[in-house]
């Protein structure tokens, strides 16, 4: 038994040696394999969610993303919708958005890029406030806070 333990210990130590030796040369290959694992994708709270529709104008596009309400075990009552303006943006942006695609505008957002000022007007009780409005490397991004209201309580 003692001899078996010694042999197993030595074998385990040599496997350890091999793991460390191949770890760095194989890092790109191992990490790209790991990146394909089902859990290796960024949470929508960080990416902003998938793009639900794209509004294209002459010099820029506006990506309206899927509203994000995700929580740990179940969806939350509060969330956000992210809007990304890309391309050559005018100094003043003003867009009315129908984020839930019910054919009715939910809010209007106006951005003055020179003054770095964003104003928000809600037409829907579920669209609450501006969480983030910031210039980005690709243009401008805004997150609007959302509140889930049961359909029975909607006006």
């Amino acid at each position: 038994m003692k001899r078996v333990k010694i042999v197993a210990g030595l074998l385990w130590a040599f496997i350890g040696l091999i793991v460390i030796i191949i770890l760095f040369p194989g890092l790109n290959s191992f990490s790209s394999s790991l990146s394909r694992a089902p859990f290796m994708k960024l949470n929508p709270r960080y990416t902003g969610g998938a793009v639900s529709k794209q509004l294209i104008s002459e010099r820029c596009t506006l990506d309206v993303r899927v509203p994000v309400f995700n929580g740990f075990l179940k969806e939350r009552n509060t969330g956000f919708v992210q809007l990304d303006w890309r391309g050559t943006l005018p100094d003043k942006i003003c867009d009315s958005i129908d984020y839930d695609e019910d054919g009715v505008k939910d809010f209007c957002i106006a951005i003055d890029r020179t003054e770095m000022k964003t104003t928000f007007e809600s037409y829907n009780v579920q669209a609450k406030n501006i969480i983030i409005s910031t210039p980005t490397s690709y243009g401008w991004a805004v997150r609007i806070g959302l509140l889930k209201v049961p359909k029975s309580k909607l006006p």
Binding site: F39, M40, K41, L42, N43, F72
Partner: peptide
């Protein structure tokens, strides 16, 4: 394990 996602604003690869 539960949401099948990473909670960090970094790059996966």
């Amino acid at each position: 394990a539960f949401t099948k996602s990473i909670i960090f604003p970094g790059s996966i690869i």
